[in-house]
């Protein structure tokens, strides 16, 4: 365990770098997916097109996407931002489906009641549909969060530092403790983010407290994405 105490600086800087690479994809992915998911819930054509694009993106292995994204966008390779852009694409690919399911879970009767009460389209969206879609959106963003935190480690293979650097460095030196520290910290980060999102959900969605997850939320949670990390 001496290694841990003598390398606390390195451990904390890699952890901070990891957080810095994880937060933007989760936040941007969520914000982008809301309008796209709403659109997909309103139009069958949009749903099919958006989900197909999402699937193709999700089929591309992460290691390749991290390289191809900057090339297609004309950015420099080996820029930490590439991981952020690639993971944002993955986040949107996962989250659009959840968001589409979330808005589809709002009953048509409720929407029509809101319209009948005189709500404009924007009022109806922000005051009725978005809050009611909240629990399913929360379930979706929790999946995205776990997946993103794990995927950030792939950047280590192309020289973008994160907790994943402990995996590559630990292997090269056949040093189990270092790799294990990285592994545990990734799991801890994922758990902390999950708790934060759950707390945020309780604050923002007080009516959801103590209720059993709805069928739509359970579907989103159970949609078992492949074990993350590689993709």
């Amino acid at each position: 365990m001496d290694w841990v105490w003598t390398h606390l600086d390195l451990i904390s800087s890699e952890t901070l770098a990891h957080i810095g690479l994880s937060v933007p994809p989760i936040v941007i992915g969520f914000l982008v997916s809301i309008p796209l998911g709403y659109w997909a819930s309103r139009s069958a054509v949009a749903r099919s097109v958006l989900l197909t694009i999402g699937n193709v993106l999700y089929t591309i292995p992460a290691l390749a996407l991290v390289v191809l994204v900057p090339v297609v966008l004309g950015l420099s390779l080996l820029n930490p931002g590439n991981v952020v852009v690639a993971l944002t694409l993955y986040a949107v690919a996962i989250m659009v489906r959840s968001a589409a399911d979330a808005f589809a879970s709002v009953s048509a009767d409720v929407r029509q009641s809101a319209t009948a009460l005189g709500y404009s389209a924007a009022q109806r969206f922000f005051r009725v549909e978005l809050p009611l879609a909240g629990p399913v959106l929360l379930a979706g963003i929790r999946v995205v969060s776990v997946s993103t935190i794990s995927l950030v480690t792939i950047g280590a293979l192309v020289g973008i530092p994160s907790l994943g650097s402990f995996f590559t460095d630990g292997f090269q030196r056949a040093f189990l403790l270092e790799a294990a520290v990285g592994f545990v910290l990734v799991l801890v980060l994922a758990a902390v983010f999950d708790v934060l999102l759950t707390v945020l959900g309780r604050v923002l969605l007080p009516w959801n407290r103590g209720l059993r997850p709805t069928a739509a939320a359970r579907r989103v949670i159970a949609q078992q994405l492949p074990p993350i990390g590689a993709r």
């Binding site: 590559t168 592994f183 078992q224």
Partner: peptide, 10 residues
């Protein structure tokens, strides 16, 4: 699913 694949391999 929660495991980072790269870490598992290492």
């Amino acid at each position: 699913r929660a495991f980072p694949t790269l870490g598992l391999l290492a």
